[in-house]
Design a protein around this nucleic acid. Sequence first.
RNA 1: GGCCCCAUCGUCUAGUCUGGUCCAGGACACCAGGUUUUCAUCCUGGUAACGCGGGUUCGAAUCCCGCUGGGGUCACCA
Length: 601
Amino acid sequence: MHLLRLSPLPAGPRGSLGRFGLLNSHPMSASDPNTVITRFAPSPTGHLHIGGARTALLCWAYAQRAQKEGRNGRFLLRIEDTDQTRSSESSTQGILKDLAWLGIDWADGPTVEHNNKTIGGDERGVGPYYQSQRLDLYNEHINKLIESDHAYPAFETPEELEAKRKVAIEAKTGYKYDRSALDIPREERMQRMAAGEPHVVRLKMPDSPITVHDQILGDVTVGPDEFDDFIIRKRDGFPTYHLAVVVDDALMGVTHVLRGQEHLINTPRHIAIQQSLGFDSPTYAHMPLIFNPDGSKMSKRDKDKTAKRAVKEAKLESSPIEGLSDADFAKWLKDKTRQLPSDQLIALAGMLGVHLPEIDVEDFRRAGYLPEALNNYLALLGWNPKSKNDDGTDVERFDMDYLASHYGFEGMGKGQAKFDRVKLLSFNADAIAQLSDEDFASRWRDWASSYDPALCERFNANDMLMLAPAVKTRCKTLADGRDVIGFAFVQDDAIEFDGKALHKALLKGEAKGLEMLKRFKDELATIDPFTPENIEQAVKDFCEKHEVGMGKVAQPIRVAVTGGPVSPPLGQTLAIIGKHAVIARIARCIEVADAGGAAKE
RNA sequence: GGCCCCAUCGUCUAGUCUGGUCCAGGACACCAGGUUUUCAUCCUGGUAACGCGGGUUCGAAUCCCGCUGGGGUCACCA
């Protein structure tokens, strides 16, 4: 065996390894209790997943809290694009946009314009924030590791390793890299590497257990048998995630690493690199993962899965989507792992009338969720403020400011959580209902301008403001606000009257609703201007004059105008479609009722 | 399969560290009633959980062990 006792490099404090003099002048050591620097480091291989959003939110909140307490708190964003084949700039832009929309802003990182403000920047001079632009830094550290014998080049091809792995698995002995590269004399290894022979670089793992002091889970110790000498630089010259993350966190001064529990097993590897390089380890906190209510993983493929099921139920055999060939459609349908581009998937779902599960932040935005509700729910999934309201109930509804001043690891749960859309929906409905009419109208309009242009065409900003009080307590998302006023989208002469409702409201009982409707129709002309308040007043006056209850008058009108027994308060319902349409609809309803009534008798 | 993490109402959770005040509290959902011109909002009340088995103890949701169950991870992905 070629095991080496690990000892830190004589390089000194982490700051001195940076190429920026600034590093030394900042209090960014992990041991400085007055500094909290957290980071979110997504790999730009797709949209921002809701689980990623939660990680980002909590990292942000933790740094914010330090800042609010007068300490040095910063949240930074770094793009982990060391996988050249899967990363894309458009994904990066989407992620930045989604974070900004959620209200999660970063002090250091790529810049983006949002609401006339610039988010991000490089105030501390520790960028760039794209790992693909930091290769020289990684190589510098990898070279140090090789020189100090903490790492070594290895020349096996992926195929050779795959073969060995296969043998090991068949023999049911766990696979570990066998360190055969170390059988090559050191001199020769170095020469072959210098000569440009294709190789990877592996880290020599220590032969003693490594303990992670996790802030959520406590101490987690993993023995040396569980690790092999993993790769820190790939054949293509790019560092692997493990090396890059450690070097960047150190050079960027990250003090607290908050991430999903899937990284727990990686952490000992990171600690080993830190020790080999002489870096302090940041404080770690691994949070539980989020799952679907059925216990499955919340995956981007869930959307395709739902669509595929709907396609099969509808027995669709050819592609109904423009730009998607029948052949590709068939391939997609057959292959469980195949995904359709977002726009095609949405179009398909629209045609089939199915609701795709929201998985990415963008999905929730499209579905009409408010960022404040999403953030509130997300924060609560795994974190509990452990604080009571005045009425004795637990604090559950809070805003970003509350989160930013109260969030800490003490309140984190350890168990995996299921994502309950119904509860989220309730949070969203509450958040919507709490908006002022003005705020609701403007946010509804903003949403519709992107996702429901027809709504903006049918109603101008003033209309939407008038609609606000009626709609905001009747919708759970901005998207289903439209359903509340669906009757306004139907042509006056195309209303389909609900037979049961029509009979009950107009034809049944002593005081005939139909009679009331006929009389009320004649009074409509006098209501001016045709506002919700004036209409309500007119109906009240009418009821008093005829000495009947409101229900006797309101329901017939409601049915006449909307076709059914359910709608917002009458004043708003009538004002929405306007006097002319109301008269037309009532007239038509009277005709229908007269005919139906005659037929019945 | 090896290793690691986890385990309270259907779901998210409080309570567990510092055993008794917990025949287990809150929220969402659900059910019943009330307010209301319909619906929604709102208000009141209700159903509902300590995974199982052993210990320790006067006493265990709380401490220990085992089991079961869920999850993560075993890449030249991150």
